[in-house]
Computed example of a mutant assay.
Amino acid sequence: MADIEKSELRKKLKADFVANGFDGLSYWQALENALCASLPRCDAKAITDTLSEKYVSVENTKKIPALQMIKVDGIHPTAAIYISLLQRVPQRIMLGKNRKIRFLTTTDRTLEYAKNMLSLQEIERVAMICLDERKRVVNAQYIAKGEESHASVSPSLITQIMTIYKPKYVIMAHNHICESLEPSHSDVSFTINTRKLIGRLGGELTDHIIVNKDDAISMASNTDFSFIFNQ
């Protein structure tokens, strides 16, 4: 594409963004805008067209590491790194919100904390949140991740974390890649078994939060599953 054409395209993209805002753009248009603004020498339209043709959907693109994207013909290494960073910055921002949340004394606060950890994850991940006797967060970390929609948790890792941090209370949380927030049979079995394990180690599992990209539920606050936490 000639430099004059690139310049005209950039002007049009900027005008569309100013007129319609981010919500008025498709994902590919937003990505093209970002590439134009940050990498002025690249052919933003060619890159977004290539990505769209190869990976079809936004969700597919989000899962592609920079090293793999670089191997695609027409994708410059700088653009691949930029796109990869662009996908992950929102995750870091969400995690950063939890620095201001020191205590999880209410269900709403717990849901917020879990959503910040999990709502933007592209694969299923499991988080373990450890609280002291005042329900102050003493540790929160991911303890498992899956290839797509399933993650297996190691009981030995849970034991290790319990031994190190000695929490009074524990909250488990994981995300569903699908839209449903309904706990699966494996979710229920995992919750029951994990509560027993944590109890043997001197702690108490007080909730299991399930998150999708838009919302979250508390199993302890759900009448169908609250019995697990009252045994």
Rank of each mutant, 00 (worst) to 15 (best):
M128C: 13
M128F: 10
M128G: 03
M128E: 04
M128K: 05
I129S: 04
I129H: 02
I129L: 02
C130R: 01
C130E: 02
C130A: 05
L131W: 12
L131F: 11
D132G: 09
D132Y: 10
D132L: 02
D132C: 08
D132H: 14
D132V: 05
E133D: 14
E133K: 12
E133Q: 14
E133A: 09
E133H: 14
E133I: 07
R134I: 05
K135H: 14
K135W: 06
K135E: 13
K135I: 01
R136Y: 11
R136G: 08
R136H: 12
V137N: 00
V137T: 11
V137C: 00
V137W: 03
V137L: 02
V137Q: 01
V138F: 03
V138W: 05
N139L: 09
N139H: 14
A140S: 12
A140R: 05
A140P: 04
A140H: 11
Q141Y: 07
Q141T: 15
Y142D: 02
Y142V: 06
Y142F: 15
I143A: 01
A144P: 05
A144L: 04
A144C: 05
K145W: 10
K145M: 12
G146Y: 13
G146C: 05
G146S: 08
G146Q: 08
E147T: 13
E147V: 09
E148G: 01
E148L: 07
S149K: 14
S149E: 15
S149T: 15
S149F: 10
S149P: 01
H150G: 05
A151V: 11
A151W: 14
A151I: 06
A151F: 08
S152Q: 14
V153W: 03
V153K: 02
V153F: 04
V153T: 15
V153M: 04
S154A: 10
S154H: 11
S154F: 04
S154N: 15
S154T: 08
P155L: 10
P155D: 10
P155F: 13
P155E: 08
P155V: 12
P155A: 09
S156G: 07
L157V: 05
L157I: 10
L157C: 03
L157T: 13
I158A: 00
T159V: 06
T159C: 02
T159Q: 00
T159D: 01
Q160T: 14
Q160E: 15
Q160L: 07
Q160F: 07
Q160N: 11
I161L: 09
I161M: 03
I161S: 01
I161Q: 04
I161G: 03
I161W: 05
M162R: 08
M162G: 06
M162C: 09
M162W: 10
M162P: 07
T163S: 08
T163H: 12
I164N: 04
I164D: 03
I164A: 01
I164F: 10
I164Y: 09
I164K: 07
I164V: 13
Y165I: 01
Y165N: 09
K166Y: 08
K166D: 13
K166I: 09
K166V: 08
P167I: 11
P167T: 10
P167R: 13
P167K: 09
P167W: 11
P167V: 11
K168W: 07
K168L: 01
K168F: 10
K168A: 11
Y169F: 12
Y169V: 04
Y169I: 03
Y169A: 00
Y169M: 04
